[in-house]
Amino acid sequence: MTQKYLIPLTAVFLLFLVAYAGAGAGLGWFFGIVFPYLAVIAFLVGFVIKVMGWARSAVPFRIPTTCGQQKSLPWIKQNRIDNPDTASGVFIRMLLEIFLFRSLFRNTKAAFNRTASNRITYSWEIFLWVAALAFHYAFLVVLLRHFRFFTSPVSSWVQFLEALDGIVQLGLPGLFLSGVVLPAAVLFLLARRLFDQKVRYISQASDYFPLFLILGIALTGIFMRYFTKVDITAIKEMTMGLVTLSPTIPDGVANLFYAHLFLVSILFAYFPASKLMHLGGVFLSPTRNMANNTRAKRHVNPWNYDVPIHTYEQYEDHFRDKMIEAGLPVEKKE
């Protein structure tokens, strides 16, 4: 049981050491140039193959999970979002699902007891939703902020995002909120897997690995920014070299940065082969992205085929005498 998380933890730690020591031993070109390129290729190719694979599978039936009143009689109020019958309703449902994790939010309602009928308790589950939301948004902000290393001059939207993320203006270099929220959320999700018996029971090594990996990425990044400090002008020279396809290894790039970049590359390469593909899957789930309108509009199954049925004729042949005797109408009197 413990190996489920100890092995991934050790793996992330070893990966870090490999890159840190490797860069120190003069393999910067590998960890800084070769592997990142390979990782991006693996990520894109893997992602595309996976999604194309999903797309190739048919959607034979229209089976949305309906979570509200259907469209029926004109005077009955339809729940257009939870039981959409139009594309626009589906669009809003998906929007809420993707940006606000609406289904997960359903978990979080207040509850009431026999004894303390007026006491409102929030279950542990609201924190799952909060942490999931915090984690994904913080990750997105962190990711987008890194565009300052890929554009020169830096786009204004990146600067705006940085200003927003650094709005507390605390310390020098200024604190980014996402840098606090991301590790905190990851730690919560990790703690949940470790200490909540039921989640611990269902968790696999492949659930722990991405968490440790992301935590490793976040911590190396945070260390570079706030603690050990690195020369970011040199680092940007290097990243710009990568994205302009003229890679260079400038002087003064810290080994810690190679470790950071290597862990990121691992994440990218690992992504398509893992559960992280829920990034793509959330858009494609037929129980959410279809309208509940099959009774009004025929849905076609591309592989629909004819099946043998027990026809009325066979039925009548079988029961004709009894039917006639009972006075039931028949096609053939014989």
């Binding site: 509850a111 007891n113 308790t121 279950s123 542990w124 018996q197 039921k198 611990r200 029971y201 269902i202």
Partner: peptide, 10 residues
């Protein structure tokens, strides 16, 4: 695994 859920006071 079940006891945690069953034991919670919600």
């Amino acid at each position: 695994q079940s006891a945690r859920i069953l034991g919670k006071d919600v």
